[in-house]
C-alpha cells in the first residue's frame, strides 16, 4: 500500500497522508486550496466512517469534508 496513490476518502482514521493531486474542476480546487489543502500538504485523518463526511486534521485545524470532496483528493500514505 505504501507507495499507492489513493483517494483521501479511503484512508482510515489515524493515518497520515500527503496530498499528491487534486482532481475536479476549477472552483473545487480553489475552494480546497483556500482552506489549506494544497499539493504536498500533510493531512491526518481523524475520523472516517466510510460514509457521510469525514474529519481531517490540518495542523491544529479540524476540517469536516464531504464524501464527494474527499474522493477528489488523491493522497499517499506517509509513515
Amino acid at each position: 500500500m505504501k507507495d499507492n496513490i489513493m483517494p483521501l476518502g479511503l484512508v482510515p482514521a489515524g493515518k497520515k497522508v500527503i496530498v499528491e493531486d487534486l482532481m475536479g474542476g476549477h472552483t473545487f480546487r480553489r475552494k480546497i486550496n483556500e482552506i489549506g489543502i494544497t499539493h504536498g500538504k500533510i493531512i491526518k485523518v481523524i475520523k472516517n466512517d466510510s460514509e457521510g463526511a469525514m474529519i481531517i486534521a490540518l495542523g491544529e485545524g479540524r476540517i469536516a469534508l464531504g464524501r464527494g470532496m474527499s474522493h477528489k483528493i488523491l493522497v499517499k500514505e506517509v509513515s
Partner: peptide, 11 residues
C-alpha cells in the same frame, strides 16, 4: 448541482 460540505470545526 452537487454540493459539498467543507467546513472548519473550531475547537
Amino acid at each position: 448541482e452537487t454540493s459539498y460540505l467543507i467546513m472548519e470545526l473550531p475547537p
